[in-house]
Design a protein around this nucleic acid. Structure first.
Lengths: 254, 254
DNA sequence: GAGTGGTCTAGACCACGCC
DNA sequence: GCGTGGTCTAGACCACTCA
């Protein structure tokens, strides 16, 4: 029942002047980054982990709770500590991303949407996007465009750019037909890429005329543009996302 | 040097089935709500507080840290624990509210704005606003409109509705001439109202034609509309705010 | 140097999920 | 009933602030 060995854990290789619980937290995160424990997998219990690193249970608890706060781990009383997968994030990440809600609260559901893949290609990205992703400006990236619709029509125009290597297994077919509600759960299952952090900005713009005409939208139509850089373990940016959302019957909850 | 008495602290009057540190946290928060410790004031140290409530220092620490997270307290190592004032919130609340940033990062400053009071009156609010503030629909509320400008012109059209009793000392004069960067610091100083929590929603709309004409804005102009309900101690809603922000050269950081 | 909050420990006990 | 994480305690020691 005991794990074969936890020898790969060590503290001393990490920089000093961090508190013990910070070092501990980084040591655990590093193991996850290296794939020693995979998304969905259960970690050894607190006592074993603490003993393996030579810290007290309280210190290990604090280190693990830091990783819960940053969304890397999930803990369930009576069950154990697990590496987060997106499907498990029901509270934090769900709130974080699917924050578009209907104005009319009586429409209890976030309204079932259908998503449609508009284009899928490899292309050189605009310079601001390639530099945000920290890749060479001449490297062709994966570029996809989707639209999300509800019964009231188009709600979100969604464009993504991502690393061709990390997302080598992303194809037009699996992107068009995935079952996951959230793209980030899909990334994890298909590409093995776990998103742990995002940085978003928002502004109001007019929906481009071409899109209005193509989808039968009135014009001028104000929309919220969200730009998002998402990072995997180690704060490495891997995906740029740009969403234009029609907020005529919807709003964002902040 | 010892405080005269901490007898007013008690745990047993609060509902059960909360953890001890939650009860402790609520007991402290309740004292602040009652004005036993005022914004900016220093609390007794952990050991005294813990002894006064008959809990361990660790439990009291956790209770106090909960209040730090929710923005009610500020703690400084080596100095003490203080009731938060808005001027002290530099990290959290500043980030929370003044999140409008220039697109051009070389404009290092959040661009000095001038604010101008457009109107100030007592008026019956629309039903959705009075019910959000949990007041009788026929009660006249304080209603003010301001505009914020930068060198590039109008940036934010800002409307507020608030409780006439809590904000009895709010006048057109002091609202027009306050020095605080943030309205919430001003509320605290002038009206004794401390805002501890807000709920915000956002959507994109077109700037109303009348405002465009009045301030020489081009039309149609997409803007972000933010609606915010702000609560004081005890989650009591006291202010409704509606802001229309021009995001042509600015964006929100989420 | 006195007083504060921050860290860390060691261990007891409780609440929950699961077999 | 067993193993898990969650709570709570008591106390040692460290780091920082301020007089």
């Amino acid at each position: 029942m005991l794990p074969s060995s936890l020898d790969f854990l060590s503290l001393r290789s990490l920089p000093k002047r961090e508190t013990l619980f910070e070092q501990t937290s980084r040591a655990i995160a590093e193991c996850i980054r290296q794939g020693r424990w995979k998304p969905g997998e259960m970690l050894p219990n607190e006592v074993e982990l603490a003993a393996a690193l030579g810290v007290s249970q309280g210190t290990m608890r604090r280190a693990l709770n830091m990783l819960v706060e940053s969304g890397v781990l999930i803990r369930h009383q009576g069950r154990g500590t697990f590496v987060a997968e997106f499907s498990a994030h029901e509270d934090r990440v769900y709130q974080r991303y699917i924050s578009l809600e209907p104005d009319d609260a009586t429409l209890s559901e976030p309204s079932p949407t259908s998503s449609e893949l508009v284009s899928f290609e490899r292309a050189v990205a605009p310079i601001d996007i390639s530099s945000a992703l920290q890749v060479d400006a001449t490297l062709p990236l994966v570029h996809a465009v989707r639209v999300l619709k509800t019964s009231t029509g188009l709600v979100t125009y969604d464009e993504l750019w991502c690393h061709p290597e990390d997302f080598a297994r992303l194809t037009a077919e699996n992107l068009a037909h995935h079952e996951e509600r959230m793209l980030y759960a899909f990334y994890q299952r298909v590409c093995g890429v776990t998103i742990v952090r995002s940085q978003e900005t928002a502004k109001a713009v007019l929906m481009p005329q071409a899109i209005c005409e193509r989808y039968g939208l009135k014009s001028p139509l104000p929309v919220i543009e969200i730009r998002r850089i998402s990072c995997t373990y180690g704060d490495r940016p891997v995906e740029f996302r740009r969403q234009l959302s029609v907020t005529e019957h919807y709003h964002y909850k902040l």
